[in-house]
Design a protein around this nucleic acid. Sequence first.
DNA 1: ACTCTTTAATTCGAGCCTCAAAAAAAATCG
DNA 2: CGATTTTTTTTGAGGCTCGAATTAAAGAGT
Lengths: 407, 407
Amino acid sequence: MTMVLRSDDMRRRNRLTIMQIVRRRKEISRSEIAQAAALSPATVSTITSDLISEGVLISQTGENPAGTGRGRPSVGLSMNPEFRYAVLLILKTGAVNVAIVDYAGAVVAQQDFRLEMTSITQPEFRSKLTAEIRQTWSASGLDHGLLARISVGIQGVTGSGGRRMLWSPITPLTEVPIGDWLRDEFGVPVRLANDCDLIARALHVREPEIYHENFAAILLAHGVGMGLFLRGQIVNGTRSSGTEFGHMMYMPDGALCRCGSRGCIEAYAGDYALIRSYSGQIDDCPPPPRVEPAEVDRVAEAARSGDVRAVRTFDAAGRAIGSGLAGMFALVDPFRIVLVGHGAEAFDLMEDAIRRTLKNCNAMSAEDIPIDLFPEELPLILEGCGIDALTEIDAAQADQVGEPVRT
Amino acid sequence: MTMVLRSDDMRRRNRLTIMQIVRRRKEISRSEIAQAAALSPATVSTITSDLISEGVLISQTGENPAGTGRGRPSVGLSMNPEFRYAVLLILKTGAVNVAIVDYAGAVVAQQDFRLEMTSITQPEFRSKLTAEIRQTWSASGLDHGLLARISVGIQGVTGSGGRRMLWSPITPLTEVPIGDWLRDEFGVPVRLANDCDLIARALHVREPEIYHENFAAILLAHGVGMGLFLRGQIVNGTRSSGTEFGHMMYMPDGALCRCGSRGCIEAYAGDYALIRSYSGQIDDCPPPPRVEPAEVDRVAEAARSGDVRAVRTFDAAGRAIGSGLAGMFALVDPFRIVLVGHGAEAFDLMEDAIRRTLKNCNAMSAEDIPIDLFPEELPLILEGCGIDALTEIDAAQADQVGEPVRT
DNA sequence: ACTCTTTAATTCGAGCCTCAAAAAAAATCG
DNA sequence: CGATTTTTTTTGAGGCTCGAATTAAAGAGT
């Protein structure tokens, strides 16, 4: 049911609307905001002047392109980069990536740490993460009070409203309360998110025209994951996070998957599955914890030069992916697909199998859905992580209607 | 992005909130409304007095239960049943069900018409439907101007924002603009909806505690359909309506489905599939257009008394359903399932296969999800259809902030 | 029978918020 | 240098919700 509105809810929402507009447009004048938001210039003037005095926005007093014509020149407003900063933490297999973004979204510091997590205790894990963040922060020379939020991107399953990592392929640890650790250490809100969800969010804001209402970003890497937008909103699991596309059943009693089950899509389309299939290992072989991307590229090269076994390997992967897509498209009508990760580089070897399978699986109208490719997942994950952090900071600030003008 | 708020949007939304509260609670006093809506008594007083003078609400001046204690007795407010009326149209195989509901949701008239639609032209179809609605309406003796809306529930796929029936098993016609026909004939807004979506909506309001955030209503009848709620919102197809659970792929190159494809879940779990399988027909037999429910009941009886072929038939149906559920549960975490329609009466024969398949298909956490049974679908469809109509009338009325007090 | 108490509903003034219109500001054009 | 044009700010009006005070309508007590 729709929530009731009090008078200052209106102000809160309009503040947020304006902040979102400025964030999206980078630099925009008050009168353009008024038009974009369908608010009167008077209201925009009041609200922006509040936001400026709070330090959220700044006027771009710098040189305006001039010569734009007669009349009083418009003055551009932007997010104030120095208003707040967020720490982004990306956990990968064997490594941790720490970045600091300013309030305008620019990465102002970034450090990579190797961190072997295959045999680590929770306390060690906690102190390592904490130390790495502290080091990156102090190296940046930023004031301690400017940290507003930490967002964490992980492979695997998050839960409890983004406060804990329930399970991840990067470590045998489960139920790891990373969110609580970092909140306690740094005293700011923390949220964990699934990497594929972050990729989808990044695409959503990067190309809003294309990735708007309904689309899925499928990450083809060691494992297979998905971030799904329906009706302009991300679809998370109901209990945990992440839509587990890679673990939809493709072949009952089929190949052994990393998750312990058999016949998952991932067990045919994940990196390890490709290598396993190409090298002629039996499908029951337990998957290796890590495969060099270059190995996959070699198989792809082999396939392109006609190696039958390599061709069959990618064909099987394509059929598995196509079958999963067909299942989704039966539930919801077909939508645009984005393949992300270096597995997307082998799309030429899988496209035919994917589309053939879609056709065979009652998704004939989906046979020619657009499929886009983004071989590099890391920039997208980082971008999505930043979007997550800044969006939340915005929301919190929009609610602070009043004068708290924290220094 | 969140829409901007003007001052009277606030009033509109609060009007709607109050109307929804009164509708849900049937009869409720102003002070209880204030509490439920988190609005001040002053505001509730203003708004309800508007709504009463518009004829939307009435005070239940009648005998109050008295003896409720000291103090000024509260006066109950209710939806005014005579404010507006809606026509509900349910299209079934070979029959049309016309009902009239008053603004409080009570069915005040209902007529069934036989209508053979297997070989009908669009103009005939239009005039039949129109005539049947007119007849039911005039038999009710209601004033012509009190008709506010028509809602249509159909098996099959609707499109164009609920204005046309794209495809339905009840007729070979396609792209039938029923919505436009009825709007032109009766001059009121019309919307078509999928029967399974209506069932899900009915459950959603009938038992909000249980069917709240995430659940699916699966209709097991001649065909197999689904209405799906995620995060408290119904999930429609992105282009058409209805989530086509029944046509998810279960067995590549499997049994022939009514839809022309092979291996759909429906081709194993629909009525016609059960009969076909039990009677030993080959899976390639084109499905009959209609099967008597009693026939299915006979097969179920046979299974219960140990007939191996009947047992296998239901087991296969259960596996197909379980496989579809597992696919959904991989995408979104497990949620409550409701089986609707007389197929639900054979749940005892399918439960084991369903749960076994869930377990085998990587949905181990879903093995013991709750599954509820509602063997009678028609009351639910009718209820959902009424909810659809009244909800829209409410929304339109809430927007009419002003004095139009139409007589 | 009358007053006191209790609870519900209404009325009234204050405080926000947005908006339209007017005014001010800051540029270009002639 | 004044006229024109466009942006931004200021001002006053109108709506909405809210808290507090008031009125309404019952039961309880003497």
